[in-house]
Design a protein around this nucleic acid. Structure first.
Length: 426
RNA sequence: GGAGAGGUGGCCGAGUGGCUUAAGGCGCACGCUUGGAAAGCGUGUUUACCUGAGAGGGUAACCCGGGUUCGAAUCCCGGUCUCUCCA
């Protein structure tokens, strides 16, 4: 979330930036600043009351030690008024702090200066398109047909055992899945990202830290018995490693990666877009996360974009990169690049990666700082990106690399799968 | 699931309800000492907020949350985590 300090210092800039999201923050921010000024006055009064009350207590302590019980009793009688006063002030403080905190939680991150003011996905800016345009003539099977014919993925079996959106992968389909995960992890390893296998469930504190709670509560599977949530992305456990941590400046940038299944309720998604692998409740993803110094974080973002680019190049998939407009960006991001692969059979773009810089927005919620040489602490910048999300990559591989007799696995990937082709049944 | 023990600063570790934000040690930083190093000596070494031009001053925090008390690291209740034993 945004800090009070930043609202005090650059109120107008933040209001203007938030307008790119079509989020009118003026009223909320002015209210917050008002409450904050009350809060400071209240704290000054409270501190003063407690100081006086502490002084009396010390005096009583001294008298008791000297055995002057009667004098102590006299002073004791004076403390009651301070106690009443401090209790009241504490309640006021708490109320103001809660009010401020709640209001701050509902203000999204201020977009970076380069982000444009569009309203939705149509206003995103294409900043790159790969050269390898896919051409498919009469062999144009969508991936769900291929997956069924070749017995790679069984959607119906998943629907029986669990529900729609929880497919089984089998045979070469499962091996392709495993190969991709390993391939992505090896590339991340080469890129200097330390691999983690994190828990697949998280507590509410972690959900708050990365910004899934309270705003996107409905998107996560929740187990109220244990107050745990299924992770919607490895971003949550990986980034929360650094919750309540002060890192050493020399340790930055910190680079983490991890493969996890991701669980999303996808409430309200129906129809054509959810066919096959296009939208699932459980899917696999390799995620990369970085903690960076503020001055370096946009270079870091570029390097993460390059990393994802390298993966898509190696998989020989036609893709484009979009810089999201204000209206299409996630709540917590300051800048986001989406990667989309072209599905020749479906004739549409499929989002396979989202790479974002959150600047200090998550760091504030996480309380993650670093200490510089002069001993001062500063908020880190957090970033993350999918590298990559599997289902749509699988869809694009099956659809774009199909020919008369089957699917050709890209050269870079084949060693990880253990086969070079998936042949159609004869 | 049951029984017990425990959670104190970067780390180890002491702590009798008041003189304890916290002894002592280690580590770290700076200085002195030295030809140089080690040892030794000295000084410093948490975080957040409020206040102040600054020096500084104030408040809070000893796993978390409540409570008792003029006053809680210390006493009481609840939670949580770790360890040991049992199932």
């Amino acid at each position: 979330m945004l800090t009070i300090q930043s609202l005090r210092d650059e109120k107008e800039r933040i209001i203007t930036a938030l307008q790119k999201r079509h989020f009118d923050a003026r009223e909320a921010i002015e209210a917050i600043l008002e409450w904050d000024s009350d809060r400071r006055k209240t704290q000054a009064a409270l501190d003063e009351t407690l100081a006086q009350s502490n002084a009396l207590s010390r005096e009583i302590g001294g008298l008791m030690r000297e055995g002057k019980k009667d004098e102590a009793e006299v002073i004791k009688s004076k403390t009651a008024a301070f106690k009443v006063q401090s209790t009241e002030l504490k309640e006021q403080m708490q109320a103001l702090e809660d009010q401020i905190h709640n209001a701050l939680c509902h203000i999204p991150n201020a977009p970076h200066g380069f982000v444009t003011a569009g309203r939705n996905a149509e206003d995103n800016i294409e900043i790159f398109r790969s050269g390898n345009a896919a051409t498919l003539d009469h062999h144009k099977k969508p991936h769900w047909e291929i997956a069924e014919e070749c017995q790679l993925i069984d959607f119906e079996l998943g629907a029986k055992v669990t529900g729609a959106g929880f497919p089984f992968y089998r045979g070469k389909g499962a091996k392709l899945q495993r190969g991709l995960i390993r391939y992505f992890l090896e590339r991340a390893d080469e890129g200097g990202y330390e691999e983690f296998i994190p828990p697949h469930m998280i507590n509410a504190e972690s959900g708050f830290g990365t910004g899934q709670l309270p705003d996107k509560e409905g998107q996560m599977y929740h187990m109220p018995e244990d107050e745990l949530y299924m992770i919607p992305t490895a971003e949550v456990p990986l980034t929360n490693i650094y919750r309540d941590v002060i890192v050493k400046e020399a340790d930055l940038p910190i680079k983490l990666c991890g493969y996890t299944p991701c669980f999303r309720r996808e409430a309200g998604s129906y129809g054509k877009d959810v066919r096959g692998l296009n939208r699932l409740h459980q899917f696999d993803k390799v995620e990369v996360v970085q903690l960076s110094k503020p001055e370096a974080s946009y270079d870091t973002l570029d390097s993460m974009v390059d990393h994802v680019k390298g993966l898509l190049e190696a998989l020989e998939l036609p893709y484009r990169i979009l810089r999201l407009c204000g209206g299409d960006m996630g709540f917590t991001a300051a800048m986001t690049y989406d990667f989309e692969v072209w599905s020749a059979a479906q004739e549409r773009w499929l989002e396979v990666s989202s790479v974002s810089n959150f600047e200090t927005y998550q760091a504030h919620r996480l309380k993650c700082r670093y200490k510089s040489a002069d001993g001062k602490s500063h908020w880190v910048h957090t970033l993350n990106g999918s590298a990559l999300a599997l289902p749509r990559i699988v869809a694009a591989l099956l659809e774009n690399h199909q020919d008369e007799t089957g699917i050709q696995i890209p050269e870079a990937l084949a060693p990880y799968c253990g086969f070079e082709r998936i042949d159609y049944p004869t």
